[in-house]
């Protein structure tokens, strides 16, 4: 978007300036009474609450870890089920035809509506939060994986077939690598929905977790504390999202040129180490002709 190549310090400074201006306007508006400070406290009060929450009382960490664990566990369980069903559906069309109507039924039901039922089933502890997280994050993984695995480039497929690739080879060397970017896109959606599921279940019935903390604070009309908790939730969401992004970068290494170069260099070195530098090219063919 930048027209000229600027040093990176200038845009950062500009962003900070804009941020400071927004905060200043907000403070000013609260000072003259344009904003109801009970409902939307001034920025310095929110900052004070953040300080209190993270440093003075340090109450947030326990809740933070609990919600983190619930969201991650829900994502792993829901993601694995979605992945498994999608892979099975992509391999066997009959299976897909009989599974997909139920998957779609689950999708059109707002998963969060199941909160009270899930809590009745799994109790007040962690498991109900994990279960709700798993339910709501199942579908994004399922649909993305299934679509990605079935939409293989037909020309590449033809080439694989003309080289007499076996079904296993086509699956592992063609379908899976081609599908991975889209599968990870599904993971990215799913991890944030798993967080939503965990937090909503906490709203309903729980004793610990960021959702509980926030609900308590906001019902005590400690709005600055509630907003601090909300910001912590954004932080949690960002952390979870970044985790998936890092994983994406590791697994789908060929999409970024620098990663691609690093990985191919590493693979080449490993190949040479195994085979000795004289034995041929990495394509496996001896350089005899």
């Amino acid at each position: 978007m930048k027209r000229r190549a600027m040093s990176s310090a200038v845009p950062v400074a500009k962003h900070l300036l804009v941020f400071a201006a927004i905060i200043a306007i907000w403070e000013g508006a609260s000072a003259i009474g344009l904003i109801d400070v009970i409902l939307l406290p001034e920025p310095h009060k929110i900052a004070a609450s953040i300080w209190k929450m993270y440093v003075e009382d340090a109450v947030i960490y326990r809740h933070f870890l609990i919600t983190f664990y619930e969201a991650l566990a829900g994502f792993v369980i829901g993601g694995l089920i979605g992945l498994g069903l999608a892979v099975a559906s992509s391999l066997n069309d009959g299976f897909r035809r009989y599974v997909s109507p139920y998957a779609i039924l689950l999708n059109v039901t707002p998963g969060l509506a199941l909160t009270p039922i899930v809590i009745a089933w799994f109790g007040f502890g962690f498991s109900s939060k994990i279960a709700l997280g798993a339910i709501v994050c199942f579908f994004p993984v399922f649909v993305n994986t299934l679509l990605a695995l079935t939409r293989t480039d037909s020309e590449t497929l033809e080439m694989f077939q003309s080289m007499r690739a076996s079904k296993t080879e086509i699956f592992w060397k063609l379908r899976v690598p081609a599908a991975l970017p889209m599968i990870f896109a599904g993971f990215k959606i799913a991890i944030t929905t798993a967080l939503v599921g965990a937090v909503v279940a906490e709203f309903s019935q729980a004793t610990a977790g960021i959702g509980v903390l926030m609900q308590r604070l906001s019902f005590a009309l400690d709005m600055s504390g509630a907003i601090a908790a909300l910001l912590s939730m954004s932080l949690l969401g960002l952390i979870l999202f970044t985790l998936i992004e890092i994983l994406d970068d590791r697994v789908v290494f060929w999409r970024r040129v620098s990663r691609l170069e690093t990985v191919s260099r590493k693979r080449r070195d490993r190949w040479f180490a195994d085979h000795g530098p004289k034995s041929g090219t990495p394509t496996g063919r001896k350089e005899t002709t």
Partner: peptide, 12 residues
């Protein structure tokens, strides 16, 4: 805003 679970703003 994208990273914040939207529904989480509920109690506020």
């Amino acid at each position: 805003l994208e990273a914040t679970p939207r529904i989480a703003i509920g109690p506020v």
